[in-house]
Design a protein around this nucleic acid. Sequence first.
DNA 1: TATTGTTATACTCTATAACTATA
DNA 2: TATAGTTATAGAGTATAACAATA
Lengths: 173, 173
Amino acid sequence: MNVSKTAEKSSEKPGDAAKGRKDVAEVLPEALQLGELSEQLGYVLKRAQLKVFENFLRCMASLQLTPAQFSVLLLVEKNPGRNQTEIASTLGILRPNFVALLDNLESRDLCARIRSTNDRRSHILVLTDKGKAVLARAKKLVATKHEARLNELLGQANREALLEMLSKIANEF
Amino acid sequence: MNVSKTAEKSSEKPGDAAKGRKDVAEVLPEALQLGELSEQLGYVLKRAQLKVFENFLRCMASLQLTPAQFSVLLLVEKNPGRNQTEIASTLGILRPNFVALLDNLESRDLCARIRSTNDRRSHILVLTDKGKAVLARAKKLVATKHEARLNELLGQANREALLEMLSKIANEF
DNA sequence: TATTGTTATACTCTATAACTATA
DNA sequence: TATAGTTATAGAGTATAACAATA
């Protein structure tokens, strides 16, 4: 059968019962049923990721660092002497898209491009002193505000288990 | 101190040792150290989410359904008689952005907008017969190919624990 | 010829303002 | 006046092709 092109809502509109606050027992049709959606790992994963990034941005508001920028600073600090291609590809960022991101960090004097003497095509990336200082403050904010809140919500053991499973998916799926 | 504007790479370029395959013990500088990045929940969460969506799209290639489209079909099936605003907001999709998404599903005859007789401003959403059939096939593909693979990777118990923690983050963080 | 960084460009997602038709 | 659906638009994020400098 095909659907007809008009439809009736149930005698009352969904909002009316809740707004009317009648004193008889009644179904509150306000909230929708997620149904199988709440069992879809991809769906829940995406919603959780958005919440975590949102909170990250709030925690980092004073330093104006996005998750992507923070990940670049962390990776450059841990891997001095690497060039743009190496840093970008490790983070899953395409080289063309990495240019503007680096321009931003460099304009804020957080990191610097240095022309390599061995291969004059490539730019070695380093943190400036200011970049090191900002990164240190960022790490503290993340630890004390962001990750601490996650620990509080999940518990230390669960947080570690979660990280392990997500890593497994990221690396082996 | 400020960084100098030139830099030397270590005597050999990073790729040389690996490519040269010398028989002496040697460090392979090829791969970068992720360092603290692999402990950042947000980073790992994002990478995992991308992998899961990628796999979802591969599993659904025959039906040409994106995660967002699948979630709409699931939610409309579970909540017949709801309008666009209700479905969209439940999924975290803004009303203006929901229009094109629905246009697509409607043009493929998977769902239909029905002008409500109670409130002629709103469009009730329903699945067409084809939409129901496609959704049924989609659910089977997701269960047998997508979620099954996740179960295989993590184990049933872990998969459930993962889902629970992600839900907690999505709902309470 | 191949690679690094870069520009230009396009396509998807997401976000906001404003219009129309209804209420 | 307020709301539902819509349009237009702008901004991120992501993807590919091609160019200059260098290897």
